[in-house]
Design a protein around this nucleic acid. Structure first.
Lengths: 136, 136
DNA sequence: TATTACGTTTACGTGCATGTCAAGTATTTT
DNA sequence: AAAATACTTGACATGCACGTAAACGTAATA
């Protein structure tokens, strides 16, 4: 699969999966839902990844680590396609990141109040535990 | 369905669902996964809920609002079955709550660091945006 | 009594993000 | 060229928490 010589131009899906710590299934799925690409090919032909595509996939991985959903990444991919140039996509990316930061803030707020409720509830239970009957 | 007179002993699933703001499907599902009960009955006979069961279901709802999963509630149900008395179940409940509080803490920590990364990343993107080529 | 308004179980559908076959094709190695 | 390995697509499986519909039984009402 590796030509071991100087040509590291095109990488196979298996090699790339190993390199990135993903499964081939994941790479195909991401392509299926249109958040990544591989090189053009005829139907049924083998997928190939140039360093350019690899960089873009790493970029997607980074954003996934940041908690972006497939849906958000799809929006970004569309913007990418429309922008034609990476630079023009950045405002959209920043917008999506802002959106996501906002969502994270909301989640954190919810968890904080949840935590408080849990602790309060726990306290009430503990108190109840030290009392006699009349429960449930 | 309601006998309108003094007997509010046994409630039907439809009435209870409405009262609690759940669907009948949810009540049957919860019973199916063994986190709630209804009165004993022959196969295929109609479900009935006494005030006791209603209280227990409200209790489960409360815990679900607190974010407890079905799995956690199943553990609690088992403990309830073993305890035979509500009071004896409380230590287990407190344990489950502690576990859950811990999980919430972990989630919050993750979100906090995620948020930081997002903001940093956003900042890097903004900076990049004000620079010329050499992207992706 | 006929209709309607419930109730019952069984079982497939949903949304995510893959995992896991299966059957066939392509490529690489011997 | 043959064998071994890796690739392809398609489709079903997973876990959660139900939604939805089918096909049927029962109970209340006009």
């Amino acid at each position: 699969m590796n030509e071991l010589r100087e040509s590291e131009e095109i990488e196979s899906i298996g090699d790339l999966a190993k390199e990135l710590g993903l499964t081939t299934r994941t790479l195909r799925y991401w392509e299926e839902v249109a958040i990544i690409e591989s090189v053009q090919r005829a139907d049924g032909a083998t997928r190939g990844y140039t360093p350019y595509y690899v960089r873009r996939i790493k970029f997607i991985m980074k954003l996934k680590e940041l908690g972006l959903t497939i849906k958000e990444l799809q929006d970004l991919y569309i913007a990418y396609g429309e922008a034609k140039q990476t630079e023009k996509m950045i405002p959209k990316l920043v917008e999506i990141l802002d959106d996501h930061i906002h969502k994270v803030d909301e989640k954190m707020a919810k968890l904080a109040s949840l935590r408080k409720e849990l602790v309060d509830y726990r306290q009430r239970m503990m108190t109840k535990f030290n009392l006699p009957k009349e429960n449930v």
